[in-house]
Design a protein around this nucleic acid. Structure first.
Lengths: 137, 137
DNA sequence: GTATATGCAAAACTTTTGCATCCTT
DNA sequence: AAGGATGCAAAAGTTTTGCATATAC
């Protein structure tokens, strides 16, 4: 779990906005946030942090490797704390709920596909879209 | 390969802009286009079609099932003719070249992962990011 | 004290839309 | 002739940036 130490190691000063944003990402009841989600959480917690700062900080966190940015359908970025354990995502198109999953075989086949095409794999994103358990009831 | 017949079947009138945009998607030396790519191709071909029309038509084609829209990293949509044969994509982060690939086992495991989580799969996107063969030389 | 970070407002970008006019059937 | 499509310009939505002020070290 990232903390102020991680900020320093990333060359980022330990400022109040950064700590507050980190707290939202760590302690929220969700793991996946749009920038607006983060901003609203801060407002609700009584924190007065500019929207521009939220974006700046999230981008800095992303560059520092603390946060992952996803480009799901819908045109808005979704941010998530990088816990170091890679996983993929199922996104409910109705309620926007995000479920994480992992399949070792899929990872292996991706690497194999990349090698086969002489492609130097750096990263990947696998998003499943559909209806989550709650929304099919 | 879609044609004016497909337009009619989709409830879309056979208009010059639609035919021209279809022609770009079919006959370009690439298969993957941003809206701007399409617009520029039209300009180069001497066609005077509004940018807004390009977006409108691409969206209509998407809804009609003629075209797929991808959300790669970078924040701009990428469009591709839907040839009916599902495939995934490797995107070169240096030259933006897009390579298609398909792995039946990955498809199977995705379905299995969805079922395991009681998730009704509708669609998915798998993008590999890295350096293509040309860019690692 | 110095360098870096933040707030605010404005800009940049992509994509969509309102409306008058034009085209297809 | 009638309904749908296009062009233009303006709007909408997300994300970034310039600059003066404030903060961390």
């Amino acid at each position: 779990m990232p903390n102020s130490q991680d900020l320093k190691e990333a060359g980022l000063k330990t400022t109040l906005p950064r700590l507050r944003i980190l707290a939202v990402l760590e302690n929220g009841n969700q793991r996946h946030f749009t920038a607006e989600d983060v901003y609203k959480s801060l407002l609700e917690a009584g924190e007065d942090i500019a929207f521009a700062t939220v974006y700046r900080v999230l981008t800095q966190f992303e560059n520092a490797g603390l946060v992952l940015r996803h480009n799901f359908e819908g045109g808005r970025s979704v941010f998530e704390l990088d816990d170091g354990e890679h996983h993929d995502h199922m996104v409910c198109v109705k309620c926007n709920n995000v479920t994480e999953f992992y399949d070792a075989e899929i990872e292996v086949r991706q690497k194999a596909a990349a090698e086969k095409h002489n492609f130097e794999l750096q990263d990947h994103s696998l998003y499943l879209y559909g209806l989550c358990g709650n929304c099919t009831k």
